[in-house]
Amino acid sequence: MREAIPKPLGAVTLLCLLTSMYLIFSWVPTEASMGIVQRIFYIHVSSAAVAFGGFFLGGFAAIAYLASRNATRDDLSVACNEVGLLFACVNLITGCLWAKPVWGVYWAWDARLTSMLLLALIYAAYLILRQSIEEPGQRAVVCAVVSVFGMVDVPIVYMANRWWRTQHPAPVLGGGGSLDPRMTFVLFFTMFSLALLYWCLVRQRRNLEALGRTTDALRRQVQAAS
């Protein structure tokens, strides 16, 4: 079995994550109106960006699986979606913890928040579905379809605060907002660091899926022999 996370990739990821934490806590200026709590922004927005990218990757891998029926594409799809869900959960929880001191409530049922929660629930359902279907071929096809359905929901979540009036603020990048250049740099650096972490976790998860397939094949051989 190939090495899940090559040492140079692991080392660069760790270095980037530590640097981004240093930048967030010590280097970037404090935002004037919200104060220190605004620093949650860097991990909140970056996690959402990585989750969205991950769901797209998972969706494209699912389409590749449906076209080729190559099990390694299914491995990649489940890995991308599961790790994407982890980042979506980080986005939702950090959002709640940011909303409480700023809005006075943990949660508001507005279009952005609700659509993001629905997206996370679609992928949670995807993982439950994976556990509940025994036959590997059927499981991969059904889950690939759900994965494509989830991917289609991503642009709706992204556009929700442009299409509808929401309590969630307008996007600061590409939405007419302005951001200090140092804040923009830290945001993109954190996104890059989390994207590296995402890729390390996907590689690990994909290897695990391949290991599971090998185990199932061997189990069938043992059952056939007995």
């Binding site: 709590v37 620093r39 991990i43 982890l86 929880i93 950090t94 940011w98 001191p101």
Partner: peptide
Amino acid sequence: NLKWLWAAFSVAWALH
């Protein structure tokens, strides 16, 4: 507000 910042980063890393 520091406690919210602390909580958010702690939860994020704990999940990972």
